[in-house]
Design a binder for these strands. Structure first.
Lengths: 213, 213
DNA sequence: GTCTATATGCGGATAGAC
DNA sequence: GTCTATCCGCATATAGAC
């Protein structure tokens, strides 16, 4: 049945994503994925002729989800929306964290993803720039062109690499795993703080007191 | 001869470092290293019983070099020295870029390095904080405790992840490879700019005009 | 110290029966 | 669609001659 086939296909993608995120692309073999699902390696191969195809499919899903975040981000013009937008972006990246946590391995192993990953970053930069100019026009921040350029770069840099860096800082047991994206969003939001003017400053301080705990 | 033995050992480390940096830890096998040196795999194994030992040795060298950078950084109290210090740090990280460019793979493959890598980051954060408070005491920047905390984090974050992120931005052929650390240092220095006061501002602008080309 | 030859195991991928 | 069985290649690591 096609229905059943599709189910299995989706289950493979689901399980692969979970394993890749948890243990890293390199450590998860196709055998392992099959075992996790209780199916045979042969069956898995029927649905995906190569591991590369699983990875490529997941990467496409990631592109789509992140692109949606970016479109939303480009429209933002209030500090409150910035935080939400960053939060959603971090959640997207966290849901597919195997991509950025191990970019070097990923791109070495599957070179055809390199240009797509670069294009994604480029669009991400455009969206961040657009977000910043939106904030300036709304009078939320006061920043020159060069400063905005810098801000956009910082935002994209931190969304991209945050979870990679996280692994290099000792775990704080006090922080629940699901709270990570919210914290990361707060951290990134703080980049804006030197440039925030007017009553938006108060809101930023409110956020600070709320999340610095 | 012990002398010759040592030579070969060092050559192995040298070649391994070069290959790891150029192609990534995962893609470079011990056979490959041996072939590159024109020695046999058996001979390589005589000097290093396992690939892990090569990696561990290189990692120790990296720790030592980066630690020296950090000690120097902690003493800095002028904007000029900050740039130099950042530059040297980026050069150290660039010289051993296989470490941070593929941390996730590295730590998954050699778990005993994880705590050492975290300790290194922790010390790095301390040094950065010390650098920032030094700048404040010297009157170069005007920043509160929380802001300094944030600055230190930004500095360490960017030194650690910059070259990883670099791979996600399209190559600009105009930038020579050896100039990368200098550019990265400039980028990181700019984090300070919102907080720089007095005549130090002029110097920062000078650097900007010099490196923004 | 250096070599050749080889053991061992794993991961990706396939063939063909059911 | 799913299975079992298997091939192939590579990477780590070892044994033993020179």
């Amino acid at each position: 049945m096609t229905v059943v086939a599709t189910r299995t296909r989706d289950r493979i993608l689901e399980a692969s994503l979970a394993l890749f995120n948890a243990e890293g692309l390199a450590k998860v073999s196709t055998h392992r994925i099959a075992a996790e699902l209780g199916i045979s390696p042969g069956n898995l191969h029927y649905h995906f002729k190569a591991k590369q195809l699983i990875v490529a499919t997941l990467f496409r899903h990631f592109e789509e989800r992140l692109s949606a975040c970016m479109e939303a981000a480009a429209q933002v013009d209030a500090l409150d929306d910035v935080w939400l937008s960053l939060h959603l972006t971090f959640e997207a990246i966290n849901a597919y964290r195997f991509v950025y946590r191990d970019v070097d391995y990923l791109l070495n192993e599957y070179p055809d993803l390199e240009s797509r990953a670069q294009a994604l970053t480029a669009r991400n930069l455009l969206a961040a720039r657009s977000l910043c100019t939106g904030l300036r026009q709304a009078g939320v921040i006061d920043a020159g062109i060069e400063e905005i350029e810098m801000l956009a770069l910082q935002i994209v840099f931190s969304t991209t690499c945050w979870f990679t860096f996280k692994r290099l800082t000792p775990k704080r047991s006090s922080v629940a795993a699901h709270a990570e994206p919210a914290l990361a969003a707060y951290y990134t939001l703080t980049f804006l703080s030197p440039y925030v003017v007017g009553e938006a400053r108060d809101y930023l301080n409110y956020l600070r007191s709320k999340y610095l705990r």
